[in-house]
Simulated scan of single mutants.
Amino acid sequence: MTAPSLSLTWTDHVTGRQGHLVVDRLVRGVASGGLRMREGCSLAEVAGLARGMTMKEALHYNPDGPAGKYIPLGGAKGGIDCDPRDPAAYGVLVRYLRAMRPYVEAVWTTGEDLGLTQDVVDRAAAEAGLVSTVQAVYRLLDDEDAARRRLAAAFAVEVDGIGLDELVGGCGVAESVLVALDRAGVPQEGARVCVQGFGTMGGATARFLSRAGLRVVAVADVKGTVFNPRGLDVEALLAARDAYGTVDRGALRPDDQELAGDAWLSTDAEVLVPAAVSYAIDVANQASITARWIVEAANMPVLPEAEELLAHRGVTVLPDVVVNSGTNAWWWWTLFGDVEADADAAFAHTRRSMRDLVGRMLTRAETDGTTPRAAAHAIVDDRLPLITERFGWYG
Protein backbone atom coordinates (compact mmCIF):
# COMPACT_ATOMS: atom_id res chain seq x y z
CA MET A 1 0.00 0.00 0.00
CA THR A 2 1.04 3.62 -0.50
CA ALA A 3 1.74 6.29 2.12
CA PRO A 4 -1.26 7.99 3.81
CA SER A 5 -3.00 10.75 1.89
CA LEU A 6 -2.97 13.01 4.98
CA SER A 7 -1.25 12.81 8.36
CA LEU A 8 -1.34 15.58 10.95
CA THR A 9 -0.91 16.28 14.67
CA TRP A 10 -2.81 18.96 16.60
CA THR A 11 -1.81 20.46 19.96
CA ASP A 12 -4.50 21.73 22.31
CA HIS A 13 -3.70 25.31 23.29
CA VAL A 14 -5.37 24.88 26.70
CA THR A 15 -3.94 21.60 28.01
CA GLY A 16 -1.04 20.84 25.69
CA ARG A 17 -2.66 17.49 24.85
CA GLN A 18 -2.16 16.23 21.32
CA GLY A 19 -4.56 14.73 18.81
CA HIS A 20 -3.92 13.08 15.48
CA LEU A 21 -5.72 12.50 12.20
CA VAL A 22 -4.59 10.16 9.45
CA VAL A 23 -6.47 9.78 6.19
CA ASP A 24 -4.98 6.64 4.71
CA ARG A 25 -6.94 6.59 1.46
CA LEU A 26 -9.82 8.43 -0.18
CA VAL A 27 -12.46 6.66 -2.25
CA ARG A 28 -15.02 8.87 -3.95
CA GLY A 29 -13.43 11.71 -1.99
CA VAL A 30 -14.34 10.32 1.44
CA ALA A 31 -12.64 8.25 4.14
CA SER A 32 -14.22 6.47 7.11
CA GLY A 33 -12.84 5.74 10.57
CA GLY A 34 -13.60 6.31 14.24
CA LEU A 35 -12.12 8.65 16.84
CA ARG A 36 -10.48 7.17 19.93
CA MET A 37 -9.27 8.77 23.15
CA ARG A 38 -6.71 7.17 25.40
CA GLU A 39 -3.61 8.13 27.35
CA GLY A 40 -0.58 7.53 25.17
CA CYS A 41 -2.35 7.50 21.80
CA SER A 42 0.30 8.20 19.16
CA LEU A 43 0.44 9.20 15.51
CA ALA A 44 1.91 5.80 14.63
CA GLU A 45 -1.01 4.06 16.35
CA VAL A 46 -3.54 6.21 14.49
CA ALA A 47 -1.77 5.56 11.18
CA GLY A 48 -1.96 1.81 11.75
CA LEU A 49 -5.64 2.05 12.57
CA ALA A 50 -6.30 4.18 9.48
CA ARG A 51 -4.61 1.57 7.31
CA GLY A 52 -6.81 -1.02 8.98
CA MET A 53 -9.89 1.00 8.05
CA THR A 54 -8.82 1.04 4.40
CA MET A 55 -8.65 -2.74 4.62
CA LYS A 56 -12.04 -3.09 6.34
CA GLU A 57 -13.72 -1.00 3.67
CA ALA A 58 -12.07 -3.02 0.89
CA LEU A 59 -12.99 -6.33 2.53
CA HIS A 60 -16.67 -5.38 2.55
CA TYR A 61 -16.58 -4.56 -1.15
CA ASN A 62 -17.43 -7.63 -3.17
CA PRO A 63 -17.21 -6.69 -6.84
CA ASP A 64 -18.68 -10.02 -7.92
CA GLY A 65 -21.42 -10.27 -5.30
CA PRO A 66 -24.99 -8.92 -5.23
CA ALA A 67 -25.07 -5.17 -5.77
CA GLY A 68 -25.86 -3.08 -2.70
CA LYS A 69 -26.45 0.65 -2.43
CA TYR A 70 -23.38 1.09 -0.25
CA ILE A 71 -20.07 1.40 -2.08
CA PRO A 72 -16.95 1.38 0.15
CA LEU A 73 -15.13 4.51 1.23
CA GLY A 74 -11.47 5.07 2.01
CA GLY A 75 -9.88 4.57 5.45
CA ALA A 76 -9.05 7.12 8.15
CA LYS A 77 -8.69 7.39 11.92
CA GLY A 78 -8.53 10.01 14.63
CA GLY A 79 -6.92 9.75 18.06
CA ILE A 80 -6.48 11.96 21.11
CA ASP A 81 -3.74 11.43 23.69
CA CYS A 82 -5.82 11.88 26.84
CA ASP A 83 -7.43 9.70 29.48
CA PRO A 84 -11.20 9.88 28.80
CA ARG A 85 -11.77 9.92 32.58
CA ASP A 86 -9.73 13.13 32.94
CA PRO A 87 -12.04 16.02 33.91
CA ALA A 88 -10.50 18.04 31.07
CA ALA A 89 -11.13 15.33 28.46
CA TYR A 90 -14.46 16.60 27.16
CA GLY A 91 -13.10 20.08 26.55
CA VAL A 92 -10.13 18.59 24.70
CA LEU A 93 -12.53 16.56 22.56
CA VAL A 94 -14.59 19.64 21.64
CA ARG A 95 -11.52 21.65 20.72
CA TYR A 96 -10.08 18.75 18.71
CA LEU A 97 -13.29 18.46 16.69
CA ARG A 98 -13.39 22.22 16.22
CA ALA A 99 -9.84 22.09 14.84
CA MET A 100 -10.68 19.11 12.61
CA ARG A 101 -13.97 20.60 11.44
CA PRO A 102 -12.78 21.31 7.86
CA TYR A 103 -11.78 17.66 7.44
CA VAL A 104 -14.97 16.28 9.02
CA GLU A 105 -17.08 18.50 6.79
CA ALA A 106 -15.21 17.56 3.61
CA VAL A 107 -13.54 14.14 3.75
CA TRP A 108 -13.54 12.34 7.14
CA THR A 109 -16.58 10.51 8.47
CA THR A 110 -16.11 9.43 12.07
CA GLY A 111 -17.79 8.05 15.18
CA GLU A 112 -17.09 6.39 18.51
CA ASP A 113 -14.04 4.28 19.19
CA LEU A 114 -12.00 3.27 22.23
CA GLY A 115 -12.62 5.62 25.19
CA LEU A 116 -15.56 7.44 23.61
CA THR A 117 -19.25 6.70 23.17
CA GLN A 118 -21.30 7.93 20.23
CA ASP A 119 -23.50 10.17 22.37
CA VAL A 120 -20.41 11.95 23.76
CA VAL A 121 -18.93 12.33 20.26
CA ASP A 122 -22.23 13.68 18.92
CA ARG A 123 -22.59 16.18 21.78
CA ALA A 124 -19.02 17.42 21.35
CA ALA A 125 -19.45 17.63 17.57
CA ALA A 126 -22.53 19.83 17.99
CA GLU A 127 -20.57 22.14 20.32
CA ALA A 128 -17.80 22.25 17.73
CA GLY A 129 -20.28 23.49 15.11
CA LEU A 130 -20.60 20.30 13.09
CA VAL A 131 -23.88 19.19 11.53
CA SER A 132 -22.86 15.55 11.94
CA THR A 133 -19.70 13.49 12.26
CA VAL A 134 -20.63 11.72 9.00
CA GLN A 135 -21.64 14.78 7.01
CA ALA A 136 -18.82 14.31 4.47
CA VAL A 137 -20.67 11.32 3.05
CA TYR A 138 -23.99 13.11 2.58
CA ARG A 139 -23.13 14.21 -0.96
CA LEU A 140 -22.88 10.55 -1.97
CA LEU A 141 -26.44 9.75 -0.87
CA ASP A 142 -29.46 9.58 -3.15
CA ASP A 143 -31.75 11.06 -0.47
CA GLU A 144 -29.89 12.73 2.39
CA ASP A 145 -32.95 13.47 4.52
CA ALA A 146 -34.26 9.90 4.32
CA ALA A 147 -30.80 8.50 5.05
CA ARG A 148 -30.35 10.70 8.12
CA ARG A 149 -33.77 9.75 9.44
CA ARG A 150 -32.98 6.08 8.90
CA LEU A 151 -29.67 6.30 10.78
CA ALA A 152 -31.22 8.31 13.63
CA ALA A 153 -33.99 5.73 13.93
CA ALA A 154 -31.43 2.92 14.01
CA PHE A 155 -29.49 4.59 16.81
CA ALA A 156 -32.72 4.85 18.80
CA VAL A 157 -33.29 1.08 18.71
CA GLU A 158 -32.53 -0.85 21.89
CA VAL A 159 -32.48 -4.59 22.48
CA ASP A 160 -32.77 -5.68 26.11
CA GLY A 161 -31.31 -2.43 27.37
CA ILE A 162 -28.41 -2.05 24.93
CA GLY A 163 -28.42 0.16 21.83
CA LEU A 164 -28.36 -1.44 18.41
CA ASP A 165 -25.30 0.63 17.51
CA GLU A 166 -23.40 -1.11 20.33
CA LEU A 167 -24.68 -4.57 19.52
CA VAL A 168 -23.94 -4.92 15.81
CA GLY A 169 -20.19 -4.94 16.34
CA GLY A 170 -20.46 -7.69 18.94
CA CYS A 171 -22.76 -9.60 16.63
CA GLY A 172 -20.02 -9.56 13.99
CA VAL A 173 -17.34 -10.68 16.44
CA ALA A 174 -19.55 -13.48 17.74
CA GLU A 175 -20.30 -14.68 14.22
CA SER A 176 -16.56 -14.80 13.53
CA VAL A 177 -16.14 -17.07 16.55
CA LEU A 178 -19.00 -19.31 15.46
CA VAL A 179 -17.60 -19.69 11.94
CA ALA A 180 -14.21 -20.75 13.34
CA LEU A 181 -15.84 -23.30 15.66
CA ASP A 182 -18.06 -24.66 12.90
CA ARG A 183 -15.17 -25.13 10.47
CA ALA A 184 -13.16 -26.94 13.15
CA GLY A 185 -16.07 -29.19 14.11
CA VAL A 186 -16.17 -27.83 17.68
CA PRO A 187 -19.69 -27.74 19.19
CA GLN A 188 -20.90 -24.28 20.17
CA GLU A 189 -22.74 -25.52 23.23
CA GLY A 190 -20.46 -25.18 26.23
CA ALA A 191 -17.39 -23.93 24.34
CA ARG A 192 -15.51 -21.69 26.77
CA VAL A 193 -14.77 -18.03 26.11
CA CYS A 194 -12.72 -15.36 27.87
CA VAL A 195 -13.42 -11.70 27.02
CA GLN A 196 -10.84 -9.03 27.86
CA GLY A 197 -12.61 -5.67 27.98
CA PHE A 198 -16.30 -5.32 28.79
CA GLY A 199 -17.18 -2.07 27.06
CA THR A 200 -19.18 -1.64 23.87
CA MET A 201 -17.55 -4.39 21.82
CA GLY A 202 -16.64 -6.83 24.58
CA GLY A 203 -19.99 -6.64 26.31
CA ALA A 204 -21.98 -7.13 23.12
CA THR A 205 -19.75 -10.02 22.05
CA ALA A 206 -20.22 -11.73 25.41
CA ARG A 207 -24.00 -11.41 25.10
CA PHE A 208 -24.19 -12.92 21.61
CA LEU A 209 -21.83 -15.76 22.44
CA SER A 210 -23.64 -16.56 25.67
CA ARG A 211 -26.98 -16.61 23.88
CA ALA A 212 -25.48 -18.90 21.22
CA GLY A 213 -24.77 -21.46 23.94
CA LEU A 214 -21.11 -20.76 24.60
CA ARG A 215 -19.89 -20.45 28.18
CA VAL A 216 -18.30 -17.09 29.04
CA VAL A 217 -15.99 -18.16 31.86
CA ALA A 218 -13.95 -14.97 32.31
CA VAL A 219 -14.37 -11.23 31.82
CA ALA A 220 -11.54 -8.77 32.42
CA ASP A 221 -11.83 -5.03 33.08
CA VAL A 222 -9.59 -2.38 34.68
CA LYS A 223 -10.23 -3.83 38.15
CA GLY A 224 -9.12 -7.36 37.28
CA THR A 225 -10.55 -10.61 35.97
CA VAL A 226 -13.89 -12.10 37.00
CA PHE A 227 -13.88 -15.87 36.58
CA ASN A 228 -16.27 -18.78 36.96
CA PRO A 229 -15.46 -22.12 35.27
CA ARG A 230 -19.19 -22.95 35.15
CA GLY A 231 -19.93 -19.72 33.29
CA LEU A 232 -20.62 -16.12 34.31
CA ASP A 233 -24.05 -14.48 34.32
CA VAL A 234 -23.36 -12.22 31.36
CA GLU A 235 -26.63 -10.30 31.56
CA ALA A 236 -26.08 -9.50 35.25
CA LEU A 237 -22.56 -8.24 34.49
CA LEU A 238 -23.83 -6.11 31.62
CA ALA A 239 -26.40 -4.52 33.90
CA ALA A 240 -23.70 -3.81 36.50
CA ARG A 241 -21.07 -2.13 34.29
CA ASP A 242 -20.39 1.59 34.07
CA ALA A 243 -19.88 3.73 30.96
CA TYR A 244 -16.27 2.54 30.70
CA GLY A 245 -17.06 -1.17 30.91
CA THR A 246 -16.06 -1.61 34.57
CA VAL A 247 -18.21 -4.16 36.42
CA ASP A 248 -19.56 -3.40 39.90
CA ARG A 249 -18.21 -6.29 41.96
CA GLY A 250 -21.30 -6.12 44.15
CA ALA A 251 -23.18 -7.85 41.34
CA LEU A 252 -21.01 -10.97 41.44
CA ARG A 253 -22.46 -14.29 42.61
CA PRO A 254 -20.91 -16.12 45.60
CA ASP A 255 -19.09 -18.61 43.38
CA ASP A 256 -17.69 -15.98 40.98
CA GLN A 257 -13.98 -15.46 41.58
CA GLU A 258 -11.98 -12.23 41.42
CA LEU A 259 -8.53 -12.82 39.92
CA ALA A 260 -5.55 -10.64 39.00
CA GLY A 261 -5.74 -8.27 36.07
CA ASP A 262 -3.61 -10.43 33.76
CA ALA A 263 -5.36 -13.72 34.64
CA TRP A 264 -7.43 -13.49 31.46
CA LEU A 265 -4.37 -14.45 29.44
CA SER A 266 -4.08 -17.91 30.94
CA THR A 267 -7.79 -18.65 31.36
CA ASP A 268 -8.63 -22.21 30.38
CA ALA A 269 -10.87 -21.53 27.36
CA GLU A 270 -11.12 -22.40 23.70
CA VAL A 271 -11.61 -18.78 22.61
CA LEU A 272 -9.91 -15.61 23.82
CA VAL A 273 -11.49 -12.31 22.76
CA PRO A 274 -9.29 -9.24 23.40
CA ALA A 275 -11.79 -6.39 23.19
CA ALA A 276 -10.05 -3.51 24.94
CA VAL A 277 -6.75 -1.76 24.19
CA SER A 278 -4.25 -2.15 21.38
CA TYR A 279 -0.99 -4.05 21.93
CA ALA A 280 -2.40 -6.15 24.80
CA ILE A 281 -0.68 -9.38 23.74
CA ASP A 282 3.09 -9.19 23.37
CA VAL A 283 6.04 -11.53 23.02
CA ALA A 284 6.29 -12.09 26.77
CA ASN A 285 2.69 -12.66 27.79
CA GLN A 286 1.65 -14.68 24.74
CA ALA A 287 3.35 -17.67 26.37
CA SER A 288 0.57 -17.74 28.99
CA ILE A 289 -2.19 -18.20 26.41
CA THR A 290 -3.69 -21.66 26.09
CA ALA A 291 -6.74 -20.77 23.96
CA ARG A 292 -7.05 -22.33 20.51
CA TRP A 293 -8.35 -19.11 18.93
CA ILE A 294 -7.71 -15.43 19.58
CA VAL A 295 -10.47 -13.34 18.03
CA GLU A 296 -9.49 -9.67 17.78
CA ALA A 297 -12.50 -7.58 18.78
CA ALA A 298 -10.16 -4.70 19.64
CA ASN A 299 -7.99 -2.94 17.11
CA MET A 300 -4.41 -4.25 16.94
CA PRO A 301 -4.43 -6.14 20.27
CA VAL A 302 -1.82 -8.73 19.20
CA LEU A 303 1.66 -7.53 18.32
CA PRO A 304 3.04 -9.07 15.08
CA GLU A 305 5.96 -10.76 16.83
CA ALA A 306 3.58 -12.32 19.34
CA GLU A 307 1.28 -13.53 16.58
CA GLU A 308 4.17 -15.29 14.88
CA LEU A 309 5.01 -17.14 18.09
CA LEU A 310 1.35 -18.00 18.65
CA ALA A 311 1.09 -19.42 15.14
CA HIS A 312 4.06 -21.71 15.83
CA ARG A 313 2.20 -22.97 18.90
CA GLY A 314 -0.95 -23.70 16.89
CA VAL A 315 -2.96 -20.72 18.13
CA THR A 316 -5.04 -19.11 15.37
CA VAL A 317 -5.53 -15.34 15.41
CA LEU A 318 -8.60 -14.05 13.60
CA PRO A 319 -7.59 -10.48 12.66
CA ASP A 320 -9.28 -7.24 13.69
CA VAL A 321 -9.64 -5.97 10.11
CA VAL A 322 -12.22 -8.71 9.55
CA VAL A 323 -13.55 -9.54 13.01
CA ASN A 324 -14.53 -6.08 14.23
CA SER A 325 -15.52 -4.60 10.87
CA GLY A 326 -19.24 -5.13 11.42
CA THR A 327 -19.87 -1.83 13.23
CA ASN A 328 -18.39 0.29 10.46
CA ALA A 329 -20.20 -1.69 7.77
CA TRP A 330 -23.55 -1.42 9.60
CA TRP A 331 -23.30 2.37 9.71
CA TRP A 332 -23.03 2.48 5.93
CA TRP A 333 -25.50 -0.31 5.22
CA THR A 334 -28.03 1.68 7.22
CA LEU A 335 -27.20 5.14 5.90
CA PHE A 336 -27.16 4.03 2.26
CA GLY A 337 -30.34 1.97 2.66
CA ASP A 338 -29.19 -1.64 2.44
CA VAL A 339 -30.54 -2.23 5.97
CA GLU A 340 -33.53 -0.62 7.65
CA ALA A 341 -33.62 0.64 11.25
CA ASP A 342 -34.56 -2.77 12.64
CA ALA A 343 -32.55 -5.00 14.98
CA ASP A 344 -33.50 -8.31 13.39
CA ALA A 345 -32.67 -7.02 9.90
CA ALA A 346 -29.36 -5.56 11.12
CA PHE A 347 -28.31 -8.75 12.88
CA ALA A 348 -29.31 -10.96 9.94
CA HIS A 349 -27.39 -8.81 7.45
CA THR A 350 -24.35 -8.65 9.74
CA ARG A 351 -24.33 -12.42 10.27
CA ARG A 352 -24.59 -13.16 6.54
CA SER A 353 -21.86 -10.69 5.64
CA MET A 354 -19.47 -11.76 8.40
CA ARG A 355 -20.01 -15.48 7.82
CA ASP A 356 -19.20 -15.00 4.15
CA LEU A 357 -16.17 -12.79 4.82
CA VAL A 358 -14.68 -14.94 7.60
CA GLY A 359 -15.30 -18.07 5.54
CA ARG A 360 -13.52 -16.63 2.52
CA MET A 361 -10.60 -15.52 4.68
CA LEU A 362 -10.18 -18.94 6.30
CA THR A 363 -10.51 -20.72 2.96
CA ARG A 364 -7.86 -18.43 1.46
CA ALA A 365 -5.58 -19.11 4.43
CA GLU A 366 -5.95 -22.88 3.98
CA THR A 367 -5.41 -22.66 0.22
CA ASP A 368 -2.35 -20.41 0.48
CA GLY A 369 -0.95 -22.09 3.59
CA THR A 370 -0.85 -18.79 5.45
CA THR A 371 -2.37 -17.18 8.53
CA PRO A 372 -5.86 -15.65 8.47
CA ARG A 373 -4.30 -12.19 8.68
CA ALA A 374 -2.11 -12.83 5.64
CA ALA A 375 -5.18 -14.15 3.82
CA ALA A 376 -7.16 -11.02 4.69
CA HIS A 377 -4.32 -8.86 3.36
CA ALA A 378 -4.28 -10.92 0.16
CA ILE A 379 -8.00 -10.34 -0.35
CA VAL A 380 -7.48 -6.61 0.17
CA ASP A 381 -4.60 -6.63 -2.32
CA ASP A 382 -6.95 -8.19 -4.86
CA ARG A 383 -9.71 -5.64 -4.27
CA LEU A 384 -7.94 -2.31 -3.89
CA PRO A 385 -6.89 -2.16 -7.57
CA LEU A 386 -10.49 -2.83 -8.57
CA ILE A 387 -11.72 -0.05 -6.28
CA THR A 388 -9.13 2.33 -7.71
CA GLU A 389 -10.03 1.36 -11.27
CA ARG A 390 -13.76 1.88 -10.71
CA PHE A 391 -13.76 4.92 -8.40
CA GLY A 392 -10.33 6.57 -8.80
CA TRP A 393 -7.84 7.63 -6.14
CA TYR A 394 -9.72 10.62 -4.81
CA GLY A 395 -13.23 10.52 -6.30
Rank of each mutant, 00 (worst) to 15 (best):
G250V: 01
G250I: 06
G250W: 05
L252N: 01
L252F: 02
L252Y: 05
R253E: 10
R253D: 09
P254F: 00
P254N: 01
P254W: 00
D255T: 08
D255M: 05
D255R: 01
D255W: 00
D256C: 09
D256R: 10
Q257S: 15
Q257V: 15
L259Q: 12
A260Q: 13
A260C: 09
A260K: 15
G261Q: 14
G261R: 08
G261V: 11
A263P: 03
A263K: 01
A263V: 00
W264L: 10
L265T: 10
L265R: 14
L265E: 09
S266E: 11
T267F: 02
T267M: 03
T267N: 06
T267D: 02
T267I: 11
D268A: 12
D268G: 13
D268M: 07
D268Y: 05
A269D: 08
A269N: 09
E270Q: 09
E270W: 07
E270S: 08
E270I: 12
L272W: 02
L272G: 13
L272S: 01
L272I: 02
L272M: 13
L272Q: 06
V273I: 13
V273M: 06
V273H: 06
V273Y: 03
P274R: 05
P274D: 01
A275D: 01
A275E: 00
A275G: 00
A275W: 04
A275I: 00
A276K: 02
A276F: 06
A276N: 06
A276S: 05
A276E: 04
V277Y: 05
V277N: 11
V277L: 15
S278M: 05
S278N: 10
S278I: 13
S278D: 07
Y279H: 12
A280H: 04
I281H: 07
I281S: 10
I281R: 04
D282W: 09
D282F: 05
D282M: 03
D282V: 00
V283S: 15
V283M: 15
V283W: 14
V283C: 15
V283G: 14
A284C: 13
A284S: 14
A284K: 14
N285L: 04
N285K: 03
Q286S: 14
Q286D: 04
Q286L: 07
Q286E: 11
Q286C: 12
Q286W: 02
A287W: 04
A287F: 02
A287I: 12
I289V: 13
I289K: 10
I289A: 09
I289M: 08
